[in-house]
Design a protein around this nucleic acid. Structure first.
Length: 720
DNA sequence: AAGGCAAATGTTTTT
DNA sequence: CATTTGCCTT
């Protein structure tokens, strides 16, 4: 190994360098937004390898997302100028999967255990609850699923939980027990189970634990504030007495508390890992000082903080723009307008992003972007491998691999419809329960023993012949042709082709995209069968790498999915009370603090220009609501904010001191924000009224010709 | 067993 | 508003 210390240390500020080179046993890095935390992590690994002569084989680096893992690996390879094969870099779940594959016997799992995604999990929970004869109205399966995952995230099995007199808890606990049994019986594990199983694997098998403790002398964890109880226990156990641990995180960016993440783990770290050096990274390299001022002011209101204050050497930059829209359409239009201008100044669209609190907001934004002909790309929402048509196709592949896969069986046995209805299926399930065999075996027996009507038997054997035919060629054909076979012969493609509207078309395209993904799939172990490797990878990777990265497009996403990203130009849309902070979180102090951290995350995504918008009227689910401007905006010092006044309009008192517009103009038959049509200027939206009676004037933003001021009485407006 | 219609239902979601 | 779910009819 070369000792090129300079390449590892240059480009680092003193706090970063201190973190990279720290020789205390453990290290806790509290890294503010944009302070270079990934850089520190990457350089610290390089430092250990190059200077401390640590073998890459002894290093374990854990992240939360596949994307972060890929990025880390890439950056280390680049820094060191070579690829480090022995080093483990991956997500908690990915590593857990790898461990369980290697130690399936000790973990008491079947060798070919399947991973359940949350959709599969919900189906099983439903199945359990139906078998228990629970009323789905009174006990929503989603809630039970949520509860079970919550327990697992805390490391609690059904057997660990004390029953209290509470009927809710008693029901949840019973469901949990039954669900555990069913998973056991089917040989499947959900996401939370992956982690919990590994914890138990280590606890119950000291020799297995010892092996990994010995191997991984150096453990590094990214986004430490997002670890849950099980992940924390994992780290403590694996680190044991000898390994050193580097944890990097930011308590101010903890936004996954609702998923079991524990910020407290940061506090516990210094206590549980003796001989820890704690370093704060507070210099921000991302944003202008105006943006940082806003971020600092917003987060300062939180009580439970370790306390960091971001600063920057860069200048004030532009003020933060605040636009008070009349309604969500006006808001979207304004944003589209600003984006057009930004792009026409020669900027790349992918350097801009629109962030929002909830996915439902994206619709209106999309419509406005579409109309303005601005290309956009939506992140998050439904992920590729979770789409209905893709999951169906994957389940066919699963059936080809292992026809005893009951979860897959249930899903596709009658998709596309082939005449196997509830009655038939229920008989098959019953036999499978009685005989303790798979649904597939039960079907075989039902047919053989002629226990079905002729029509049903015909349908069932049709399905079995189909699966058998496809799995017969398993070893002969390449993966992509297997997939092609699966989507064609199963009739999935035809089914969606017959579907009316654009949706069917999109689904067919997605299925073709799946075949494509199979073509590009590179198995880790080139000696082993490809299909199982593909299915495992797919189960642990949402497949959110976008297909058409080539087009320069504005990025739309929720605030949650924006964490870790940065953009020169950022819009925060929907800055209204009840939307952000969300009404579900407003009354609980702890949850409100998390919303505030989310606001902090949002603001700190912006590098050069931040624009926040809110709508005075917003229709949600068909009903109109009037929300005041978000408290997070009111917390921002006024001197960094510039309120946007529309073009030449004689402004109404929009001020975010909290005055909202009345229903001024209601006697004219039109309302603010209303869509109207003019026989010369075309379609537009009412921005403002001026004056009363027949001489009242109206400001309208037209789609084609911009804002005009017209005499209401002579404008001949038509509401649309 | 499948297809059509009314009713219910809506935060965030790395894996 | 728009999409999914469950019930009811063919």
């Amino acid at each position: 190994m070369g000792m090129d210390v300079t390449s590892v240390l240059n480009q680092l500020n003193s706090a970063q360098e201190q973190a990279v080179t720290s020789d205390k046993k453990h290290l806790l890095v509290l890294a503010g937004a944009g302070s270079g935390k990934t850089r520190v992590l990457v350089h610290r690994i390089a430092w250990k390898i190059q200077v401390d002569n640590v073998s890459p084989y002894g290093i374990l680096a854990v992240t939360f997302t596949n994307k972060a893992a890929r990025e880390m690996r890439e950056r280390i390879d680049n820094l060191l100028g070579m690829s480090l094969r022995g080093m483990w870099v991956g997500t908690f779940h990915g590593l857990a999967h790898r461990l369980l594959k290697a130690h399936w016997r000790d973990a008491k799992l079947p060798e070919n255990f399947q991973i359940l995604d949350s959709d599969d999990q919900l189906r099983l929970v439903k199945r359990v609850m139906r078998a228990m004869d629970l009323d789905e109205q009174r006990w929503p399966p989603k809630q039970a699923q949520w509860w079970i995952n919550g327990q697992k995230d805390e490391g609690l099995r059904a057997a660990h939980i004390q029953e209290s007199g509470d009927p809710f808890m008693a029901t949840m606990l019973r469901t949990y027990r039954q669900y555990e049994l069913l998973c056991e019986q089917l040989g499947v594990i959900d996401f939370a189970e992956l982690l919990l199983r590994v914890l138990e694997l280590w606890r119950n098998n000291p020799e297995v634990l010892g092996h990994y403790q010995q191997r991984f002398g150096h453990i590094l964890v990214d986004e430490f504030q997002d670890t849950n109880a099980v992940q924390y226990a994992w780290l403590r156990l694996l680190a044991g007495k000898n390994s050193d641990v580097t944890a990097v995180g930011d308590d101010d960016q903890s936004i996954y508390g609702w998923r079991g993440a524990k910020v407290e783990n940061i506090l516990s770290f210094e206590r549980d890992f003796a001989d820890t050096e704690t370093i704060k990274l507070e210099q921000n390299y991302r944003s202008t000082s105006n943006i940082l001022k806003a971020a600092n002011a917003v987060i300062a209101k939180n009580a439970d903080r370790l306390g960091k204050n971001l600063w920057t050497e860069s200048g004030e930059g532009e003020p933060i723009s605040l636009y008070a829209a009349f309604n969500e359409h006006d808001e979207a239009r304004y944003i589209a307008d600003r984006l057009s201008a930004w792009a026409s100044e020669g900027n790349r669209r992918e350097d801009s992003a629109i962030l929002y609190r909830s996915n439902a907001q994206s619709r209106v934004l999309e419509a406005a972007l579409l109309q303005a002909e601005i290309p956009y790309r939506i992140y998050g929402g439904q992920r590729f491998y979770e789409r209905l048509e893709i999951k169906n196709a994957l389940c066919y592949l699963r059936m080809m691999l292992n026809c005893n896969d009951d979860v897959a069986f249930e899903r596709v046995v009658n998709i596309p419809p082939r005449g196997i209805g509830d009655r038939t299926l229920e008989q098959i399930r019953e036999l499978s329960r009685e005989a303790g065999c798979s649904l597939w075996d039960a079907s075989t027996r039902m047919v053989e023993e002629k226990r079905l009507t002729a029509r049903a038997a015909n349908a069932v054997s049709g399905f079995m012949v189909l699966i058998n035919e496809m799995s017969g060629q398993l070893d002969e054909l390449p993966l992509s042709e297997q997939a092609e076979n699966a989507i064609q012969h199963s009739g999935l493609v035809d089914m969606h082709r017959r579907e009316k509207g654009e949706r069917g078309q999109a689904r067919v395209e997605n299925l073709e995209e799946l075949v494509n993904a199979c073509k590009n799939f590179e198995p880790e172990d080139s000696g082993a069968p490809v299909l199982p490797q593909f299915l495992d990878q797919v189960a642990l990777d949402a497949g959110d790498r976008q297909a058409d990265q080539d087009e320069d497009a504005v990025q739309l996403m929720t605030l949650h999915s924006a964490k870790g990203l940065e953009f020169p130009m950022v819009f925060l849309a929907g800055m209204e009370e009840n939307l952000f902070p969300h009404k579900m979180s407003i009354d609980e102090p702890g949850r409100l603090e998390e919303e505030r951290r989310l606001a902090y995350v949002g603001i700190t995504r912006a590098m050069q220009k931040l624009t926040m918008t809110f709508a005075e009227t917003r229709s949600t689910y068909g009903t109109e609501s009037f929300n005041s401007v978000s408290r997070f905006i009111r917390d921002i010092p006024k001197d960094v904010v510039e309120e946007v006044r529309l073009h030449n309009s004689i402004s109404r008192p929009t001020t975010y001191a909290g005055i909202t517009n009345s229903d001024e103009g209601s006697d004219t038959g039109f309302q603010l924000g209303q869509q109207v049509r003019h026989n010369v200027y075309g379609d537009g939206i009412i921005l403002n009224f001026e004056g009363n009676g027949p001489r009242a004037r109206v400001h309208i933003a037209f789609d084609e010709v911009g804002t005009k001021i017209l005499i209401l009485a002579s404008a001949n407006l038509v509401a649309i």
